[in-house]
Simulated assay, not measured.
Amino acid sequence: MKTFVLGGGCFWCLDAVYQKTKGVTSVVSGYTGGHVRNPDYYDVCSGMTGHAEVVAVTFDEDTIPADIVLDMFFAMHDPTTLNRQGYDVGTQYRSSMFYSTTEEKILFEEAILRNQELWSKPIVTEVVRLPEFYEAEAVHQNYYAKYPGQGYCQVIINPKLAKARKYYSSWLRA
């Protein structure tokens, strides 16, 4: 098993896509990259903690290659916008990849180079060593599955799921 910690805007969006991905065994929403210990959602949303909303995606490489997990990441958010994804604005929504090993750092850097050709603007995704990861509150775990009718899910997450189905249908569960 391998775990990648990735930030691409609101963690609910990445969580929704990866929860439906074959070979993914766990998706945990959380916070990392900042200077405040044990932050909560309201602390992070203030923009004053330095933390990003992220997901820790654990997957079986025998089922889904790491490159596919990373390519999905770049397809599910706009990695060319600094500190924003759509209407979500602030450093907590930055595009980020947090590595634990040199091997992961290399995989992340290669994924940026591979995916740059899909974007007309430069990718601004930060690649930094993973500091402490703080699990988000229970309400944020598997959010889309619990609240699919909620407005944000309908307007923001559903189009991302449709895009995932269009480009990665063979890697998604029904």
Score class of each variant (00 low, 15 high):
2 K>S: 07
4 F>N: 02
5 V>Q: 07
6 L>P: 00
6 L>Q: 02
11 F>W: 06
13 C>Y: 12
17 V>K: 02
22 K>N: 05
22 K>W: 00
25 T>Q: 15
28 V>R: 00
30 G>C: 09
31 Y>R: 05
33 G>N: 04
34 G>W: 06
36 V>I: 09
38 N>W: 04
38 N>P: 02
39 P>H: 07
42 Y>T: 10
45 C>V: 07
46 S>T: 10
47 G>K: 03
48 M>Y: 10
48 M>R: 13
52 A>Q: 13
52 A>W: 08
53 E>N: 04
53 E>H: 11
54 V>W: 10
56 A>M: 03
57 V>K: 02
57 V>R: 04
59 F>L: 14
59 F>P: 01
60 D>H: 13
60 D>P: 11
60 D>Q: 08
61 E>R: 05
62 D>N: 15
65 P>D: 10
68 I>K: 12
69 V>Q: 01
70 L>T: 05
71 D>S: 13
71 D>L: 09
75 A>I: 02
75 A>R: 07
76 M>V: 08
77 H>G: 03
77 H>E: 08
77 H>D: 01
79 P>K: 06
82 L>M: 14
87 Y>F: 08
87 Y>Q: 13
87 Y>I: 13
88 D>C: 03
93 Y>W: 08
95 S>F: 00
97 M>E: 02
101 T>H: 03
101 T>L: 12
104 E>D: 14
107 L>E: 15
108 F>I: 12
109 E>H: 01
109 E>I: 02
109 E>Q: 14
111 A>F: 07
112 I>L: 09
113 L>R: 15
115 N>C: 13
117 E>D: 02
117 E>R: 08
120 S>K: 13
129 R>Y: 05
130 L>C: 06
130 L>Y: 03
130 L>I: 04
132 E>W: 07
134 Y>P: 07
134 Y>C: 07
135 E>L: 08
135 E>C: 08
136 A>S: 14
139 V>Y: 15
139 V>W: 08
141 Q>E: 10
143 Y>P: 00
143 Y>K: 00
146 K>G: 14
147 Y>R: 13
149 G>S: 11
150 Q>I: 10
152 Y>P: 01
152 Y>H: 07
155 V>A: 11
155 V>T: 13
155 V>I: 14
156 I>R: 08
156 I>C: 11
158 N>D: 15
160 K>V: 10
162 A>D: 05
163 K>P: 06
164 A>Q: 07
165 R>Q: 15
167 Y>F: 15
169 S>V: 06
170 S>C: 13
171 W>P: 01
